[in-house]
């Protein structure tokens, strides 16, 4: 994962020559400051192939990283290479990139097909080519049935999928998704996760940012953790999961009669303690979040109770960051 410093692309040429073995994305000691705030400091990463999760809390520098990658902002120091080319003031590499921005605002007055067709033409496609490709990517994200409807009528999850489809229209080698799961319902989440996994399996380089660990975990094992503008950890999610399991976690259940549920939960080995927050909330403490999550559905069904919500109030990312930073997070 360490960047190869000997590779250099030509920054100014519009027609780049792909250099063999160059990482798709390479950050070499990149820093970005806004006034006195360090959004990124000394980030060095090289990413090629597969799905990589960029994990970090709000303000950790995920969006800054992506904006630098997409040439929207200029690094304060360090070098960024996209397919070996500096993306600042040079849009040439974007013919091989698909970008899903974080912003919720879209062109609500356009139909999904119109939107994707219009922006596909910015890749130099003719109208016919663009329409054909737009139809293809819309069916890839399972929106082919509603492609003639206006985006304004879409649910949050559908809008995210339109954004993803729009980024795929040029058949990119690198796909960058900024918080694609934010605000989506469970069904949309699953669809989007499957799309991302599929892209990874197709050999594309995919970068997904999120602030929720278990979401990223369901997509990929390759994770970069950003914290306060620095790369805190690079690696495999299993290792991270192990770290996480060493740590106490909390699960909050909303149900009508928590006392009945509590009886069966307290017997589990993984549970270290339970408490009643209020008459309709049950708090479970555990060191094995995954195991509890596996057993919990059956217990709920057996108890015959109606559970209206399951939440991890103690954000798992927060706790992992606590652990990694030795308690300063």
């Amino acid at each position: 994962m360490m960047p190869d410093m000997t590779q250099h692309g030509k920054a100014e040429t519009q027609q780049w020559q792909p250099v063999a073995n160059t990482p798709v994305v390479m950050f070499d000691r990149v820093s970005k400051t806004y006034g006195r705030i360090n959004a990124l400091s000394g980030v060095s990463i090289g990413i090629s192939g597969g799905v990589t999760g960029i994990l970090g809390m709000n303000g950790a520098g995920k969006s800054t990283l992506f904006k630098l990658m997409m040439g929207k902002i200029k690094p304060s120091s360090g070098a960024i290479r996209l397919f070996g080319t500096d993306p600042w003031k040079n849009p040439a590499p974007y013919s091989r990139v698909g970008f899903v921005p974080e912003h919720e605002k879209m062109y609500d007055w356009m139909t999904a097909l119109d939107f994707i067709t219009t922006f596909a033409r910015l890749h130099g496609m003719t109208r016919d080519e663009a329409t054909k490709e737009a139809t293809r990517v819309l069916s890839f994200v399972s929106l082919d049935e509603v492609m003639h409807k206006r985006i304004g009528q879409f649910s949050k999850g559908m809008r995210q999928r339109v954004k993803i489809a729009h980024a795929l229209v040029n058949d990119p080698e690198l796909i960058v998704l900024d918080e694609p799961l934010q605000g989506c319902d469970p069904l949309a989440r699953t669809t989007i996760m499957n799309v991302i996994k599929q892209l990874g399996a197709m050999g594309r380089t995919v970068l997904v940012s999120s602030h929720i660990l278990h979401e990223i975990e369901r997509i990929t094992e390759q994770i970069v953790i950003l914290h306060r503008g620095r790369v805190l950890a690079l690696g495999n999610s299993h290792a991270i999961r192990e770290m996480l399991d060493q740590h106490p976690h909390k699960i909050l259940l909303d149900c009508s009669n928590p006392r009945i549920l509590a009886k069966s939960i307290i017997d589990l080995d993984e549970v270290t303690g339970i408490s009643f927050v209020n008459p309709e909330k049950l708090l479970i403490e555990t060191r094995h979040l995954g195991a509890i999550h596996q057993k919990l559905p059956q217990i709920i069904v057996d108890s015959g109770q109606t559970v209206t919500g399951i939440d991890n109030p103690d954000d798992d990312l927060q706790s992992i960051l606590m652990y990694l930073t030795g308690g300063v997070a």
Binding site: M70, P91, H103, K105, F119, L122, G124, H166
Partner: peptide
């Protein structure tokens, strides 16, 4: 302001 400029600027097209 609305952030929709990102759709245009993420394409191989000069500003």
């Amino acid at each position: 302001t609305e952030g929709t400029i990102h759709y245009m600027l993420a394409k191989p097209i000069a500003r």
